[in-house]
Design a protein around this nucleic acid. Sequence first.
DNA 1: TTGTACGCGTTATCAT
DNA 2: ATGATAACGCGTACAA
Lengths: 341, 341
Amino acid sequence: MSTITLADVAAHAKVSTATVSMVLRNRGRISDETRKRVLSAIDELGYVYNQTAANLRNRSSNQVGLLLHDITNPFYAEMTAGLSQEMERHQLMLFLANSEESADRQQKFVDSLLQNSASGMVLCAARQTPTLFFETLKRRKIPAIMVVRPVADAHFDFVGTDNFLGTQLATQHLLDLGHRHIAFIGGSINSTTRAQRLGGYTSKLVEQGIGVKGEWIVDSEASQSSGAKAAEQLLMAHPEITAALCYQDIVALGVMQTLRKFNRQIGRDFALIGFDDITEASLVQPGLTTVSVASREIGRKAGELLYSRIQGNDEPPKRIILPPSLVIRESCGFADKATPA
Amino acid sequence: MSTITLADVAAHAKVSTATVSMVLRNRGRISDETRKRVLSAIDELGYVYNQTAANLRNRSSNQVGLLLHDITNPFYAEMTAGLSQEMERHQLMLFLANSEESADRQQKFVDSLLQNSASGMVLCAARQTPTLFFETLKRRKIPAIMVVRPVADAHFDFVGTDNFLGTQLATQHLLDLGHRHIAFIGGSINSTTRAQRLGGYTSKLVEQGIGVKGEWIVDSEASQSSGAKAAEQLLMAHPEITAALCYQDIVALGVMQTLRKFNRQIGRDFALIGFDDITEASLVQPGLTTVSVASREIGRKAGELLYSRIQGNDEPPKRIILPPSLVIRESCGFADKATPA
DNA sequence: TTGTACGCGTTATCAT
DNA sequence: ATGATAACGCGTACAA
């Protein structure tokens, strides 16, 4: 069974291929009469539109790419859902790739996108991305929106959250509850995002005339076990700590394990705050107070912006920073229950 | 800057386009001499391969699709990661779409895949998928692997877990602990997966000469609150129940809430088992004993199988059923602690 | 509305 | 043994 082409449809409907093409894409003025003939011909022949041929002719496509390091991270899964929704609204197909922090894989994915004449992409760049990557990407003039991880190069659009403000909110909350011995746990040292979150925390402490203790600031990988381990060492060395702000919810969940092991009642004699507001945060006992960053919304906004760029929007690069908010659950107890050391 | 084509490269290297094409694809016999000339020409001109043109000519593509209902569900996110890995290994681009259980969206996605001449797809079909969908899909003769949710039509390849065996394991575990009043909570009545899990539970009871009580089997939606509500009604009417097997971990988490409300000590005077082994299962207190299905492995296997189909493997439809395993945590207590009524 | 050149790589057939 | 020629895949858009 050979493929049925647009030409076949045209023959069957006794019109030209141009007419069929116009009917398919609702362009030009076609009489209702012929339109009907064409549509029924399409139906009768079981014609399947060949997007590839159209793409070749148009030197473009209805495809966009999304690069993450780990779709397994609930934060990114949520963001992906938001973006996916938006792409679907505009009939764009979404390519997904996990870089797993490999600059190499990332480069390969982008190359593939270019070879497929994708019309745009959303990137959460791998941590060790060489500057050259961005340079060459710029040169290609393909719409690219950076998300979550800010890029030094101000030439790119960016959608993310206000990390600084987020940890400021969280720190203030802990201070309001009376805590003065507040630790910061998690994040990898060479991460910009971490620098920002750390900045919100330290600046708030300083603002309130409270010294920043370097020993109370520890890093960790983005996993529960790593968070648990970091917390263990920290609390062993500094039992005077009564509260902790975590770089991520995942880390906070790990810290929870450690607290239990140390027989520290979460929400009673230890206050804990996370960052991201992943689903798990509301499921654990006690519920984790955390900074919510509207991950789904980041995906949506990135999608909107990308679409507008594809449509030709050539305003200067935008930076969309979504405001975080503090979601108060039980992991810090209530104001009147706070029992700082 | 106009696009540089393969013809440009050919001219620059003073060879024909055929030669360039052959070099690019490592086909045919090309002397090392010319190969080098071509490669350096490609380099000098900054040529970007046009995959679209190749796809048009070949009536195929290096693209495959993945349809889920919800990427946000950790189970599917994990599976996606596994599939994504596999696809990358074979240089295949992965299209992602969320059906959100809409048969309509699902159909649109598959149509798009066909229009883009995707070379295959992995589907977790929406619950209310009309039979016609599968019929037409079969007719297209495009490789399609079903995952997680089995399809009545035995014509399709399938990769999933052994739901029946999973709940058998779980039920046996409860029986071993001495429980005789075991409930089954969750799942929607028209789900095949539920039927299978329910089957493992009932068959094991019958096998041990224990009657199946219809009143102890209740359905619920896939949410914590729904699980909590179902458990509440159940325990109110049947306080003699001492253990429950849940359709999903999410439901089990809800049941936990209810048990606390009823002052039933989980792991002491009530045993609870979930299904899926989502991350949350290890986070709650007490840890949830659950049936683990290797979600990432499902993705990998589906990818492997899909790739082989794309390569032309035309063996009869396969059903790859990954064995589940029971992950024992604390929600059933220890054997010696079991205190069935 | 239509005729038709065009986008760009592929491969079967030919040539040396 | 190596490489060239040219028809082909199929929808698009401009000139007529």
